[in-house]
Write a protein that binds this DNA or RNA. Structure first.
Lengths: 152, 152
DNA sequence: TTTAATTTTGACATTTCCTGACCAAATGGA
DNA sequence: TCCATTTGGTCAGGAAATGTCAAAATTAAA
């Protein structure tokens, strides 16, 4: 088993114990495994990338740190599925359910979900005749999701 | 956690307790944290800059002071004005200009501005007859801004 | 056995933090 | 007025972290 695998395993276990967020110092970890610090970067980029469902933040200088956060894996797949599932019309409650799901899956931030919710509400669509609102709502929702997909 | 972070935290809490304005003496604060006075300046410039939403005033000499003021109430006024200015209908370019202004004023994040832009675009409103799009757009934009106002 | 992919290492760059020496302004008393 | 005292400001440099990149070593695949 390569050293990178050991480091990965260590970090995964740490993440489990810490409930999804682990904060550490690169030098410490490197010392613990008797390797050069830059090897930690290698492990982070190859095994803790966003595609693998992790977010890595860091800060340099005195008191610097590296923070690894477990996020939902494969947001793009979920988004694609959601976009296809919206269809040509969608009523308010269904749209709200969609947003709630994507929020809980971590694909949308709370702020984004609420913002889209505001754009989809009946208050926002007052200028649209009732019988056409579901179609308009679908168009807006889809476009917002497509936008989110592109931003990801 | 670096000392600068501790000082920042202390000041933020003080600002909360004081309702947005904190007045203090550089030497006192430095002594409290056992650091050199210039470290206070470092914290102020790196964490309480105007971009971060703070105003820092000071005076030297006997009875000198440093006053930190939270200047986030500004965005709410801008938002109110914008909401009132939208009116009952708004075309695409005008809406884009609105968003750009609010973005530059720091009222909207880049992500939020783009998201609203996506919800307002012709692609999202293709289910709406052209002659009614400006009215629908105004409704959505207004509702998004109202939502942002409530979140602030 | 070759060839390609992955891992490991180290030199160098960049960012952030902390300190201290020196500078500038306001105050107050002689 | 003059000057000593009391504040805060500025700047440069060292220290403490992380980031980058490419070459060397190893391992896996054809």
């Amino acid at each position: 088993m390569a050293m990178s695998d050991l480091i990965e395993k260590f970090l995964l276990q740490l993440l489990d114990e810490m409930g999804g967020v682990a904060e550490l110092q690169r030098g410490d970890l490197a010392e613990r495994f008797s390797c050069v610090p830059s090897q930690i970067n290698y492990v982070l980029t190859t095994r803790f990338s966003p595609e693998h469902g992790f977010l890595v933040e860091s800060r340099r200088g005195g008191g610097g740190y590296i923070r690894i956060t477990r996020v939902s894996p494969e947001p793009t797949a979920l988004l694609m599925h959601a976009i296809n599932a919206v269809g040509g019309a969608i009523d308010g409650p269904s749209a709200a359910a969609f947003l709630k799901n994507l929020l809980q899956a971590g694909v949308l931030s709370l702020g984004a979900a609420r913002l889209i919710g505001a754009a989809l509400g009946d208050a926002a669509l007052r200028a649209v005749p009732r019988e056409r609102r579901d179609a308009v709502r679908a168009g807006i929702l889809k476009q917002c999701l497509v936008h989110t997909y592109h931003v990801l």
